[in-house]
Write a protein that binds this DNA or RNA. Structure first.
Lengths: 343, 343
DNA sequence: AATTATTTTTTACGCGCGTAAAGAATTGGA
DNA sequence: TCCAATTCTTTACGCGCGTAAAAAATAATT
């Protein structure tokens, strides 16, 4: 590294002995030049550590090497974890991921889509807010930018959807719970932010019907993304005022369950499978913290790796296909039951 | 919104009746043009919804309107929460924040700094990994790019540091714990990733000396950023094998405490202030989940709002000052004791 | 060695905007 | 009303790179 300053590609062309248009080709796709010239370029690259000006690069390219990643709520470790995997895969494939969080707010999601347009990304991985999303804004965006939806499906939008099979989550937990004790009642928000919640409730009702058991759905109030607090308040309310229809509670998702377990602890309700326990609690998602609740939470785990991996691969295929699929793809991955202490 | 296509600033100049250089000035700083012309521009903007090409904009500008935000570990809700506030403030001030997470890995932190250079940001808010950081890489980066460090201080690097006063955290918890029961022993990682941990241990030792109490530091093994698991394993180990020097445990941070509490629950050790409890546990950070541990965690809270607010303001001042301060600034905010059920 | 296919060089233009300079227009104040 | 200060328009050039086309060089094939 002789550390000399190289101002632009022209100068680097002189230093490396490779013409500027060839360099341009190389930086756009290193595999597109002959092996011997590629070697010459990369040797020079080590000597002079030149990097092309990304702004000048992207100015004329119809499509950049940028990939947008949008999640509804980054403070949720579930999304933070998925983002980590996706980010890495994008970088490995030579793309530049840009991360955005809607922070649960519709106007922020819209703003993000707006600024994403002017980034002219090669593609976007979008986990929409769900119920709060501005459907028409998302639809318009997907028409302009090659987009793969993940986590929350919105019918017909984007070229593909990759997510988890909510039925697989609920069928496993319901089956397990009713096989090993009283059948569960279902604990959820009355107005869930996320469409997965509705699918889970329906799956619960369906499973209970199939097992010829009586379903009970407990719906609690609260809006927004502070699920733990909503779960706790709803839990306190239920434990104080209501007779539980069964001793087994199946929460729609882990964050609600975390709040509910904290309410149980406050009310001295012992949770678990033991003889001294009065309540069993299970849930869905395998949230990174569900291992550390008291007791540890029995839950159904997303196939994190498959979901994020397949979402990225689908986007890469989409980009190679010129941004459109003949037909919208939908891929769902099954859940895996994680048995811990709470049920 | 007549929704006509406007290809570039030239065309928009024609449509709006304002010359291109003036438009350029406007987009660079809306306040820099006369009110009447600003109005004309903004009226035209509503009709034609033109947006300047960000790549062409930034190509020639020595400095962009981008701000880089780098955190060591985004899956930690603590950082996710801080990022949210910072992001919003940047947008409000007319900047474009770009978010990056080092995911606890040195080489990723270095890569981020690298790609941040080519973004030519107006400024960077950097929360370094700490112990794992490549000090010389950070130093070199800070020489080139106006940088404000936050959360973890690294002596002399960046133009300013904004964080929390670790002494204030520990002095309050130690004072409270020793006033209301047995004095605490200190629970921490043997090789903490974060320099704040060392400051907290020293603060503990100092406080205990000041109160003329005997200090006990319990150091547990484990590296990386999976603090909960490290805390749990360390907790199990201590509860099984060791005689605790006191019945009061002060954890270095909440994530360790979350793991430790889960170990206590597993070992049937009742935690809290009640007569039936054998252990008190307190900690530092006021992690977003510390409200939902069982029992809820007594802790010392960061002044989230002040830290993130002041970090952003400091960066803005730095940018206005041309990227350099005469003298490195250091601002620490005091903690606030949050009394909950665990101690 | 001759022919063909592939890759690189040369040359040249354009992208969309920043920005400098000089002159014209507008404004504000007395 | 006039002058000075401010703001705007006109004109022009450059940024760093993409990319097209034709000529030259290199590699692969016969």
């Amino acid at each position: 590294m002789t550390d000399q300053k190289v101002r632009n590609m022209e100068e680097f062309a002189a230093k490396s002995g490779v013409s500027r248009p060839t360099l341009s080709k190389y930086f756009n796709d290193p595999g597109s030049v002959r092996g011997s010239t590629r070697k010459r370029i990369e040797e020079a690259l080590e000597q002079y550590d030149y990097r092309p000006n990304i702004y000048a690069m992207n100015q004329n390219r119809r499509l950049t090497k940028n990939i947008g990643i949008v999640v509804p709520y980054l403070a949720d470790p579930f999304f933070a974890e998925i983002v980590r995997v996706i980010e890495r895969r994008c970088i490995e494939a030579g793309f530049s991921p840009s991360l955005f969080s809607s922070h649960g707010e519709r106007h922020l999601e819209n703003d993000i889509l707006d600024s994403l347009r002017s980034l002219k990304p090669a593609g976007v991985l979008l986990a929409p807010l769900g119920r709060d999303s501005d459907k028409s804004a998302i639809e318009a965006f997907c028409r302009d930018v090659p987009t793969v939806l993940f986590d929350s499906n919105i019918e017909g939008m984007g070229e593909a959807f990759v997510g988890s099979d909510n039925y697989s989550f609920v069928s496993q937990t319901v089956e397990y719970l009713s096989r090993t004790g009283e059948p569960p009642c279902f604990f959820e928000m009355r107005q869930p932010a996320n469409p997965n919640a509705n699918k889970r409730r329906n799956a619960y009702l369906d499973m209970m019907a199939r097992l010829e058991l009586e379903p009970h759905v407990l719906q609690i109030d609260g809006t927004g993304w502070a699920f733990e607090e909503i779960g706790r308040q709803g839990g306190l309310d239920i434990l104080e005022n209501k007779d539980l229809p069964t001793n087994t509670m199946l929460c729609s998702n882990d964050r609600l369950a975390i709040g509910f377990l904290s309410a149980c602890f406050e009310k001295d309700v012992r949770v678990g499978r033991g003889a001294d326990c009065t309540l069993r609690v299970a849930s869905h998602d395998d949230h990174p913290f569900s291992r550390y609740t008291c007791p540890s939470l029995t839950t159904a785990a997303h196939d994190y790796a498959s979901v994020s991996g397949h979402a990225v691969e689908t986007l890469f295929r989409l980009i190679e296909s010129g941004g459109r699929f003949d037909q919208r793809e939908e891929t769902l991955f099954a859940a895996r039951l994680i048995m811990r202490e709470s049920a």
